[in-house]
Amino acid sequence: MSYRSYPNADRARRQVDRHHVQQPAPIPTMRVAMADWVVAALESALEAGRPFREMIEAL
């Protein structure tokens, strides 16, 4: 497909602004809460695995 310049640049910009710019979706509060839960779960797993990690480091 060969290049063709758009006949009216202002019209092209308006069309791009109207159809191709997507607004970001708001972040659901449940996703924010899930992130906090994941951080808490990882901290708990790290603490639960501490004795095993210390044993392996001692070897």
Rank of each mutant, 00 (worst) to 15 (best):
P26D: 07
P26N: 13
P26A: 12
I27N: 12
I27V: 14
I27G: 03
I27Y: 00
P28F: 06
P28L: 00
P28Y: 03
T29L: 00
T29C: 06
M30I: 05
M30N: 10
R31N: 06
R31L: 11
V32W: 03
V32L: 13
V32G: 08
V32E: 09
A33W: 11
A33T: 11
M34E: 06
M34W: 04
A35R: 06
A35S: 04
A35L: 11
A35H: 05
D36Y: 10
D36N: 12
W37E: 15
W37L: 13
W37F: 14
V38Q: 09
V38W: 01
V38N: 04
V38K: 08
V39T: 15
V39Y: 09
V39I: 11
V39A: 14
V39D: 13
A40G: 13
A40V: 15
A41L: 12
A41M: 12
L42G: 08
E43Q: 07
E43H: 01
E43L: 13
E43S: 01
E43A: 10
S44A: 14
S44W: 15
S44P: 01
S44G: 07
A45P: 06
A45H: 06
A45D: 09
A45N: 11
A45Q: 10
L46G: 02
E47T: 06
A48Q: 00
G49E: 15
G49N: 13
G49V: 09
R50G: 00
R50C: 01
R50P: 03
R50E: 02
P51K: 03
P51I: 07
P51F: 04
P51A: 05
F52H: 00
F52N: 00
F52E: 07
F52C: 11
F52T: 10
R53T: 05
R53H: 07
R53W: 11
M55K: 02
M55H: 01
I56R: 07
I56E: 05
I56A: 03
E57W: 00
E57K: 11
E57H: 02
A58G: 03
A58Y: 04
A58T: 05
A58N: 11
